[in-house]
């Protein structure tokens, strides 16, 4: 497989991982959208090269970002990254044999909490997904789901007891998503948990979970272990969804009201005419 010709996918910013994973002087091999890359950390910055050419580079939010094309917008805003009392937790890159779009869609999903994150983010006795709101914010080209509430037995590393957690979800680009969630210790603020997906090939992804949290009790190891536990619980689902690529063709899957965010996400991907990581459609002319 070689670099995709999907213009919508090429013209996006992608993370290649946490900056701390690119040591000074070392050459690191990576891969994005079906193309091999080399990354070199230099004294005055980071160089990313593919097929003999240098790619644009951004170093924001503790991560390295690049693009094969010309993104319409700059990298998304993450104002919480400027708040001094937040802890930055890098949970480490995990490879998943699934489309990155499946990873993002799963990240947006509340209804799986009781079954996949049993007795942590959900419990079988409280499976109901209450109505929430979704919107496409056209000025920033982001998707938001708000007023999400779910009963959680152990919402975070620092939780001692169950609570109704409030969530907001924010999709900033097809492969980058974050959620805002009330921390157990600071109910007037929002923890940020981001999932930056590096789409390696159509059905192979690297998930970079990253947190900006308010928590002065847990150790870094505990915070990271909690999020890794959650993500790897999802991994068994992601690698066993069929097809591995996200189907955009109507009727291939069966959404319900709980899947409003997923429905909006798929519609948005179609609007962008994004193809990388989607199942080829048979219902379109010239497909």
């Amino acid at each position: 497989m070689s670099l995709t010709d999907d213009r919508a996918a090429l013209d996006q910013w992608y993370t290649l991982g946490a900056l701390q994973d690119f040591p000074d002087g070392a050459e690191v091999h990576s891969r994005l959208l079906g193309e091999d890359l080399t990354v070199r950390r230099l004294a005055d910055g980071v160089e990313v090269r593919a097929a003999g050419r240098a790619l644009p580079v951004r170093t924001e939010y503790g991560h390295l970002w690049t693009s094969f094309g010309t993104p319409e917008r700059n990298l998304f805003e993450l104002p919480e990254s400027r708040e001094p009392d937040r802890r930055w937790i890098h949970c480490g890159p995990v490879r998943v044999r699934a489309s990155g779009l499946r990873l993002v869609e799963n990240f947006l999903d509340l209804a799986h909490f009781p079954y996949v994150h049993t007795d942590i983010l959900g419990s079988e006795a409280h499976p109901e997904v209450a109505k929430y709101e979704v919107e496409q914010r056209r000025d920033v080209d982001e998707l938001w789901a708000t007023k999400c509430e779910f009963y959680q037995p152990k919402a975070a590393a620092a939780s001692d007891e169950g609570q109704i957690s409030k969530y907001m979800y924010r999709v900033v680009s097809p492969f980058n998503v974050m959620l805002y969630k009330t921390p157990p210790t600071a109910p007037d603020r929002w923890d940020v948990i981001a999932l930056f997906v590096q789409p390696v090939d159509e059905a192979v992804s690297v998930a970079n979970a990253f947190m900006l949290v308010i928590d002065d009790t847990s150790t870094d190891a505990e915070l990271s272990a909690f999020q890794q536990m959650i993500f790897v619980q999802d991994k068994i689902v992601l690698e066993n969804q069929r097809p591995s690529l996200l189907p955009l063709q109507p009727g291939r899957e069966t959404p319900t009201r709980a899947d409003l965010s997923s429905v909006l996400y798929r519609r948005w991907l179609k609007e962008k005419q994004l193809r990388f990581g989607t199942e080829p459609r048979t219902d379109l002319p010239n497909a």
């Binding site: 946490a18 994973d21 890098h90 949970c91 190891a221 505990e222 990271s224 272990a225 890794q228």
Partner: peptide, 10 residues
């Protein structure tokens, strides 16, 4: 006691 095996290599 949580040991940060990955990514921390504790």
């Amino acid at each position: 006691q949580a040991v940060d095996f990955f990514p921390g290599r504790e």
